[in-house]
Computed example of a mutant assay.
Amino acid sequence: MPELPEVETTRRGIAPHCEGQTITGVTVRNPSLRWPVPEDLAQRLEGQVIRTVDRRAKYLFLNLDGGTVIVHLGMSGSLRIIADDSPPMTHDHIDLQLQSGATLRFNDPRRFGCWLWADRATEHPLIASLGPEPLSPEFNGGLLFRASRGKQTPVKSFIMDNHVVVGVGNIYANEALFKAGIHPRRKAGRISADRYHRLAEAIRETLSAAILMGGTTLRDFVNSDGKPGYFAQSLLVYGRTGQPCPDCERPLKEIRMNNRATVYCSRCQR
């Protein structure tokens, strides 16, 4: 599933081709996504200018003068700029034709993504209750500490809650907790303010590094036949069960939390 760094890489990849462009046509081949594509989407979009392409959590915003298209990639979705006359593939569900002659094409084999319309995106039910962005000034250890008081939930589940902070997916939660030296099963309400400051910084560093590495794939957003070439990641613990801990060389352990792989070091994480 595309996570926050991959979605941000997508935003950066398509924005230069979309911003300032008038939408000259809309083709919806299959409206049956996670939620039905609005029947009047073409009517709303044709003739409008895409002013900006923004991101909130894992949602992309195509901001127009009259409102916003909210796009989510789901589990298997991708966006591409088609600069030639390449015919649509089986799972190419939506095309936006742009004044430049290029096409913004949405592909989603599993159809868990969405294309929705909102007059005010920040007030949409999917967006309004989201927590702060992890790379924003609003996110810090103090926020995590205050939100965690009295919480009995494991800290890994706590930081993956989009009402607490958005975009900390499973891989990044594993990595950040290792960097901060915190056991993933420790109760969120039993962690000190100092340790939350370290964890907030680890989350910020982990996601920033992943986004930076994603910059090498921006060329893949034009005329690619496949999915985004999401960047190879330099992971410290995730996917390395049984291998030596990067710090103490003790074999890394794996447990299941909420049916997700959780890898940690029993010596370095407390």
Rank of each mutant, 00 (worst) to 15 (best):
Q97I: 00
C248K: 15
N162W: 02
S78Q: 04
R34F: 09
D247M: 14
Y264E: 08
Y196N: 08
I50V: 09
I182P: 00
L96K: 00
G25K: 13
V165C: 03
R44H: 08
G77H: 04
A128I: 14
C245Q: 15
S86Q: 14
I182K: 02
K187W: 05
G20D: 02
W117H: 07
W35A: 09
R110A: 01
L116V: 06
D194M: 03
M160P: 01
P2T: 13
P154K: 03
V168N: 11
R198W: 00
Q21A: 08
I203Y: 07
V37D: 01
A209E: 15
M257E: 13
P31N: 05
V26H: 05
T216K: 13
D194Q: 10
G131H: 00
Y238D: 05
L60S: 03
G141R: 05
C245N: 14
R110T: 07
T217A: 15
R204W: 01
D65H: 09
D40C: 02
K187Q: 14
A232G: 06
D220R: 14
P228K: 04
G215Q: 15
L116Q: 14
R198S: 01
F145I: 08
L64A: 09
D92W: 05
P244V: 14
W115G: 08
G242E: 12
V222T: 13
W35D: 10
Y264R: 02
D108S: 01
P132W: 01
Y59Q: 05
Q43I: 06
C268V: 13
A232K: 11
R120D: 15
S157P: 00
G181N: 10
A121M: 08
I70T: 05
L64K: 02
A202W: 01
R185G: 03
V37C: 03
E123K: 14
E133K: 00
I14K: 04
Y172V: 09
S234A: 09
N259Q: 15
I70D: 06
P38M: 04
R12F: 11
K179F: 02
I127A: 10
G181I: 07
E3T: 15
P5W: 08
M89W: 10
G189D: 09
I70N: 06
D65F: 00
R111N: 10
P16S: 12
Y59D: 04
G67V: 00
H91G: 04
H124P: 06
T27Q: 12
F221A: 12
D161L: 00
M160H: 08
H93Y: 05
P228N: 12
A209Q: 15
D54L: 13
P88G: 10
L4G: 11
I23N: 01
R204A: 07
R195D: 11
R260A: 12
R80W: 06
P88W: 02
V37F: 00
L79G: 04
R190H: 13
Q152E: 13
M1G: 10
N259F: 12
W117P: 01
L79F: 04
L236E: 12
N170P: 10
L126A: 11
F231S: 13
N162K: 03
G25N: 14
D194A: 11
E8V: 11
Y196L: 05
C248N: 15
A210M: 10
L60A: 05
S234K: 07
Q269T: 05
P2C: 08
I70A: 06
T68R: 03
N174F: 01
L144C: 12
L236K: 11
M75R: 04
C18E: 02
F145Q: 11
S86G: 07
K151W: 02
G226F: 04
F158N: 00
Y59H: 12
R219P: 10
